[in-house]
């Protein structure tokens, strides 16, 4: 199945919710007028896009509509296509040309995020993906705080047949990371993925702990961690931007993973994150199964979000 097809299948709920409301708006407004923009704004806000970004999107849309000299009779379809372009453009500068920077051996991915965003599950999915690509993967249980967090990662390790480096509960996560990188080098694995404890971004001490993990890794490899992935919960509202901003400041986030996009949440706040922080979305989590992790394509995302007609797919 093509990526777009799969994305579309998985995002069907999202599409129904958001795409339908857009479609409804457009079909009930044959003319492009202020009412149309007001209702588009509502659809965007309901998708968690956020007030400021929604305004920016609509402003860009207005400009595009003005520039599109000859609008055909089918205004609705045109506006939808233009809106899709605007959203894709907003996320596009963030979609960096190159993929993940994992040429080093071992390459290190640090996975961070707030509590309950889906870090550990995402790590399992990532590990599975790279494993299928033929890489040798090692996992590190850097969440030494939450009860049974390292057990959770170990269970995933067992299921995937991957080794997991862990120390007891309450161990220094930086020490776990250091040990894990040493082990990764000694064992000659290709990729080390380090889990971290969930932390709210306004907890200064916990954020300091994250930067310590980074510092300690650099003692073994000046370029590590090669990627810092921030896992965001698609259900999160406007706080998502603030989360991303602080994590970016402190741990140098290099990419985003949007988890739990399989519900009815539209994840519109991600547009704001990309737009404001210029961060690429690397993967999206579309389900609870291990294979439910897909690489992100802004255009496909925007198309599906807006309920693109089958013909284009």
């Amino acid at each position: 199945m093509s990526l777009f097809g799969k994305l579309k299948e998985k995002l069907v709920k999202t599409q129904q919710a958001f795409g339908d409301s857009i479609r409804r708006v457009l079909s009930s407004h044959p003319r492009i007028d202020e009412d149309l923009y007001a209702e588009l704004e509502e659809a965007l806000l309901t998708a968690d896009v956020g007030v400021q970004t929604a305004e920016d999107i609509l402003q860009a849309l207005r400009d595009k509509v003005r520039r599109a000299s000859a609008m055909s009779d089918d205004n609705a379809a045109n506006v939808r296509a233009l809106l899709g372009e605007v959203i894709a453009e907003m996320m596009a500068p963030a979609a960096r040309e190159n993929g993940l920077n994992l040429s080093a051996r071992p390459a290190v991915i640090l996975v961070v995020g707030v509590n309950g965003s889906g870090k550990t599950t995402t790590i399992a999915k990532l590990a599975r993906k790279f494993q299928q690509d033929g890489r040798r993967v090692l996992l590190a249980a850097g969440d030494t705080f939450r009860a049974a967090a390292s057990e959770q990662l170990s269970m995933w390790g067992d299921r995937l047949g991957l080794p997991v480096i862990s120390q007891g509960a309450g161990a220094d996560p930086a020490a776990v990371a250091f040990d894990a990188l040493q082990a990764a080098k000694a064992r000659g694995v290709d990729l080390l993925i380090i889990d971290t404890a969930g932390r709210l971004h306004n907890k200064a001490n916990l954020m300091q702990e994250l930067s310590k993990i980074g510092r300690v890794l650099k003692k073994l490899d000046a370029d590590a961690p090669h990627e810092v992935l921030l896992v965001l919960d698609a259900n999160t509202g406007q706080n998502m931007v603030q989360q991303a901003r602080v994590f970016q400041d402190i741990s140098g986030v290099t990419g985003l993973v949007v988890a739990k996009l399989d519900g009815t949440a539209k994840g519109g706040a991600v547009i704001s994150v990309c737009h404001e922080l210029n961060l690429p979305v690397r993967f999206i989590g579309l389900g609870e199964k291990m294979d439910d992790l897909d690489e992100f394509d802004p255009e496909a995302f925007a198309r599906v979000l807006l309920g693109e007609p089958e013909a284009r797919a």
């Binding site: 919960d233 999160t236 509202g237 998502m240 009815t264 949440a265 539209k266």
Partner: peptide
């Protein structure tokens, strides 16, 4: 419910 949830909190 997650206190950080967005618009979809209602539907869930």
């Amino acid at each position: 419910a997650d206190g950080m949830a967005g618009q979809d909190a209602v539907r869930a």
